[in-house]
């Protein structure tokens, strides 16, 4: 039922019996943007896709498999959601990588690797830098770098530039998009920034008011 280049597909999806989504297709290896007014369930959609929320109706297919038949832990390892609320441990950048990797049951990556991912996110601090002394935007980028380093198959960014100034936001998204293109990672971005959407969007999904209570 899925076309070859579709990685996610939804059918009659509803959440909380309040939000009804039109059928959505996320295209594999492309940059997919989800746009629309506030309160239309964009963030909830991402959480439905990674199975941290359950729909009140309808189905979600990931690579043609209904996600209800999948182990949600495996799904989340492949489909990584970088939410708006950033969490970092009150430690150095290096220690943050180590702790997150430890939670996933993995050894921490090499310093060189950490620096590579930080560079993609436009962070040039030493790995010993304490994360508690960083600005909101810096923390957001370190958080992004850590998630990126796990090399998921799909990366979902919820308002990735909300805490960044315009130039910084553009650079980071450009780098992340380049990185994902080179590594065949599908990107899904929620953004209110028209400029960003127009510059990078290859598949733009508009979730509109008409999607509510239809």
């Amino acid at each position: 039922m899925c076309m070859e280049n579709t990685i996610f597909e939804t059918k009659d999806l509803a959440f909380n019996a309040q939000i009804y989504y039109q059928d959505i297709k996320i295209i594999k290896d492309k940059v997919n943007f989800i746009v629309g007014p506030s309160g239309t369930g964009k963030s909830s959609l991402l959480r439905l896709l990674n199975g941290t929320l359950s729909p009140s109706g309808g189905e979600i297919y990931y690579q043609s498999t209904n996600i209800l038949e999948m182990d949600t832990i495996e799904l989340r390892k492949e489909v990584s959601l970088i939410s708006q609320s950033v969490f970092l441990f009150d430690e150095s950048i290096r220690e943050n990588f180590r702790l997150f990797y430890d939670y996933r049951g993995l050894d921490k990556p090499s310093d060189h690797m950490m620096e590579e991912y930080l560079k993609i996110c436009n962070i040039s601090f030493s790995l010993d830098k304490d994360c508690t002394t960083m600005s909101g935007g810096e923390r957001q980028r370190v958080y992004l770098a850590i998630f990126l380093s796990f090399m998921p198959k799909v990366i979902m960014l919820d308002e990735p530039t909300s805490a960044l100034d315009k130039d910084n936001g553009l650079t980071v998204i450009q780098n992340v998009v380049d990185f994902c293109k080179n590594n065949n990672i599908t990107v899904i971005i929620i953004s209110h920034d028209n400029h960003l959407t127009q510059s990078f969007g290859e598949n733009i999904i508009i979730i509109g008011k008409e999607g509510i209570n239809e």
């Binding site: 941290t52 495996e74 989340r76 990584s80 996933r104």
Partner: peptide
């Protein structure tokens, strides 16, 4: 520590481990 729980969940960590 809701943020921590949410972040780890999104990263594919089991609720038990969190």
């Amino acid at each position: 520590q809701r943020n921590k729980i949410e972040a780890l969940l999104n990263l594919g960590v089991t609720p038990k481990k969190i």
